[in-house]
Amino acid sequence: MEMEKAPRGRPRRLDKEKILEIASNLFWQQGYEATSINELVTAMGITPPSLYAAYSSKEELYLAAIDRYSASYGRQMLSGLALHSCVYEALRTVLYECVEVFVGGDHPSGCMISTGLVESSNAQGALARKLADLRQQTIQIIADKFKSCETQFVEGTDLQALASFFGATIQGMAVQARDVNCPTELHKIADHSLSVLQACRRF
């Protein structure tokens, strides 16, 4: 592959938000390990020293990309919990927003957190732990919503297990979206899992 010549004249100002967006999409699409610094700087149109001036390492860039994802898509996916007092409507909105994000559009399919690093080797242990914690945080946020809506459930419902079940549904839909990128299919899966919630409701 022929290398593009660097543009002449004064170097372009580094748009940190833009390079973070490019990094996020590459990491989201390919994962942390498969994305090289070379690939990142080529996509960003900058040199490695410019990138290292902004982020001291690939790990730091990845963490910034994860934070960016959580603040935008992560918030969008969980927005239903704050919007609805009815637990069924809240979870339905969460699952449908997840589908909206997972099927892509102007970004890669799947979920950067659900399909991100897991502890595949000791080398990225700390990063993998951070992602695992974020995945657990999502389950805990759902569990907290269930607890705050306890009166809507049939007595004796195992709310923690129910939250883990929806955690598994969300993670499962995120990985399914990468193989079958079809919103209709994912909506049907979401509706099936909601029938478990419906069966636990008092009214």
Binding site: A132, F165, I170, Q171, G172, V196
Partner: peptide, 30 residues
């Protein structure tokens, strides 16, 4: 497709170190 989704969700959770007894409860719910 729902059960392959559940299975894959369980796989992710197991990889994150969620204890097996919690995963069995998730399987039962599904």
């Amino acid at each position: 497709r729902f059960y392959i989704t559940t299975l894959r969700g369980l796989a992710s959770q197991a990889a994150d170190g969620i204890p097996s007894d919690e995963l069995y409860r998730v399987a039962d719910l599904s």
